Amino acid sequence: MSLSTNRLIGVGCGVATGALWGMVFLAPKFAPDASPMLLSAGRYLAYGVLAAALLAPRWNKVAPLLDAKAWRGLAWLSLAGNIVYYLFLVVSVHFAGVAASALIVGMVPVAVAVWGLKDPDAPPLRKVGPPILLAAVAVVLIGWESLSREALNRDVSQVLIGLACGLAALLSWSAYAIGNSRWMARLPQVSAQDWSLLTGVVTGGFALLLAIPAVVEANGQTTDQWARLAAASMGVAIFASIVGNAFWNQASRLLPLSMLGQMIVFETLFAFAYGYLWESRWPTVIEIVAMAMMVVSVLWCVRAHRPAAVAAAEGDH
């Protein structure tokens, strides 16, 4: 396939990832009585079991492709991109709401795209700077209205805790996105799907350690609360972790890092859409304008990464 075709497929994978990952913001709302630790343990235990079952038939072929360094890489990626990230995200959703959490995590494209400018195949800052700035303005615009609305219904200290945890989730996931892209490039012999499943197996191991104190803490959960937790955990594990991560890894293999970061914008857009459905309301005019700005930002960035555009930009030096 040509470079432009790969980029188009990569963008499609990025959109699919956003649609699936956006669902994770609703899990804390669907099981509001479950603690962040219990939600994280439930989601990633389910992810680990499913990943192990899917990978089992090919384990003898896949496992030898990784050395000790790659397994250590999987360990820190599993912590940064799954366990630690989701713990902070759940706390953020509980205290600051879906909109505020999606807002802060929506800044990941800016962080990743800026970091990706160091790559040799990245276009110059003057080409990708404007769409990155546009995305940042869009996120701030949504946040200005969303945070004002959330602050009216919550204690200020709770909102601040939620925002701090959202920022921690942003930093954790940015580190994962950058590190995962690097490891995917180092291990071309491992398919995107297998890398996702391997991440799931390692994450499931960490979730086992997390499950013990989480279950002890949740001793008073009712049958209905356990059922909601199980449904949320299994749904997010299948759609966001298994399928979503596979799409993301494919996008990571087809797109340069500075462009890959822009794809995370779709997670924010879908998270807001799901939030509107959950709250049974339409977006405001400001929110519609901001989301339109995000879409324009992504399309602008895609154009900046077209081979002809990159070559022309480099020829201007």
Rank of each mutant, 00 (worst) to 15 (best):
F239M: 11
W71Q: 07
R7M: 11
V62L: 05
M259G: 03
P36K: 15
S92C: 06
V15Q: 04
L229I: 06
D316L: 07
A111W: 03
S196N: 12
G204F: 03
L125M: 15
L38C: 13
L260T: 04
A70P: 00
V128L: 06
P57I: 08
V190Y: 06
V265Q: 10
V110C: 07
K127A: 13
F25V: 03
G166R: 03
S233C: 08
A246I: 03
V296C: 13
G220D: 15
L197D: 03
D67S: 07
R149G: 09
P28V: 15
V90M: 04
C13W: 04
A237P: 00
D121Q: 13
I242E: 00
G116E: 01
W226T: 09
L133R: 08
A214K: 02
T17H: 05
D155T: 13
S191D: 06
C13L: 07
F30M: 11
L187T: 08
N219D: 12
A230F: 13
T199M: 08
A135S: 13
L152A: 14
T223A: 15
A51G: 02
L208P: 05
D33A: 14
A63C: 09
I161W: 05
A138I: 07
V91W: 00
R253L: 06
V105N: 01
W248Y: 14
A273W: 06
K118S: 15
F30R: 04
P64H: 06
G48L: 06
V128T: 11
N6K: 09
K127D: 05
A151C: 12
G244S: 11
A99C: 11
L20H: 02
A207N: 04
G106I: 00
E145G: 12
S157I: 10
W71C: 11
A237L: 14
R306V: 10
V91C: 01
R186C: 07
L254I: 03
V98K: 00
A56Q: 14
K29C: 09
F239D: 04
S191I: 06
L152G: 10
G261M: 01
A211Q: 12
L229W: 02
P36S: 15
A164R: 04
L66Y: 05
P123K: 01
G275C: 11
P256H: 01
S252W: 01
A135E: 03
S35N: 09
V201I: 07
T223G: 10
S148Q: 13
W300T: 08
V140D: 10
A99K: 00
A111I: 10
S191T: 09
L133C: 11
L77Y: 02
I132M: 10
C165F: 15
G315Y: 04
A19G: 05
L3G: 10
A41Q: 01
A102G: 15
Y86Q: 10
V84I: 12
H305Q: 04
L171E: 01
A68L: 13
L160T: 14
M37Q: 14
F272P: 00
L152K: 11
G244C: 13
V98H: 00
P188K: 08
A240V: 02
Q189A: 13
S101Q: 14
L160N: 08
G315T: 14
R126A: 14
S35Q: 07
